[in-house]
Structure formats: structure tokens, C-alpha cells
Amino acid sequence: MLGPGCSKCKETYRVVERVIAENHVDVKLSKIEDIAEMMSYNIMTTPAVVVDGSVK
């Protein structure tokens, strides 16, 4: 999950957490807040969700 910590970013993180828990998916969820690292994904807005290195 890419996002600086705004309310939309926090809500997206909670939604992804809930989907993972409800579906018993074995994944590692992490949140990237570092601007330089977020820019490496060539995103224009946040929040953004990254799955296996690809922005979805």
C-alpha cells in the first residue's frame, strides 16, 4: 500500500486488511509512506495498492 497517511490512505489500508482477513489470504501487507519510494512506482495519486510489484 502506497500513501502518505491521509484519511483515504488509512481507509484503503483498513479495507485491504479486512479483505485479507475475510478471505484468509496468506500475504504480507505493508504501508509505504516514503515519498521517494512511492515515486519509484510512477504513481500520480495516492492511495495506491501494489501486488507483486505491480500497481493495481
Rank of each mutant, 00 (worst) to 15 (best):
M1E: 09
L2P: 00
L2S: 01
L2H: 00
L2C: 02
L2F: 02
G3V: 01
P4R: 04
P4W: 03
G5P: 02
G5F: 03
G5I: 06
S7T: 13
S7K: 08
S7D: 13
K8L: 09
K10W: 03
K10E: 13
K10D: 07
K10Q: 14
T12V: 04
T12H: 02
T12N: 04
Y13C: 12
Y13R: 14
Y13V: 15
R14L: 15
R14C: 13
R14D: 15
V16N: 08
V16H: 06
V16P: 04
E17I: 08
E17S: 11
E17Q: 14
R18D: 14
R18A: 15
R18F: 07
R18E: 15
V19M: 15
V19L: 15
I20V: 11
I20W: 02
I20Y: 02
I20P: 00
A21G: 09
N23L: 07
N23T: 13
H24W: 09
H24T: 13
V25F: 13
V25I: 14
V25K: 07
D26G: 07
D26I: 05
D26K: 12
V27H: 06
V27P: 01
L29M: 11
L29A: 08
S30Q: 09
K31R: 12
K31W: 15
I32P: 01
I32Q: 11
I32T: 12
E33M: 08
E33H: 03
E33Q: 10
D34W: 04
D34T: 08
D34A: 09
A36H: 11
E37S: 09
E37L: 12
E37A: 11
E37R: 13
E37G: 05
M38H: 05
M38I: 13
M38C: 04
M38N: 05
M39L: 12
M39F: 05
M39I: 08
S40K: 11
S40A: 09
S40E: 12
Y41G: 04
Y41V: 10
Y41N: 04
N42M: 10
N42W: 06
N42V: 06
I43L: 02
I43P: 01
I43H: 01
M44Y: 03
M44F: 04
T46S: 10
P47E: 02
A48Q: 08
A48R: 08
V49Y: 00
V49G: 00
V50K: 02
V51A: 07
V51R: 05
V51G: 03
V51I: 13
D52M: 00
D52V: 01
D52I: 00
G53Q: 03
S54Y: 08
K56A: 06
K56R: 12
K56F: 07
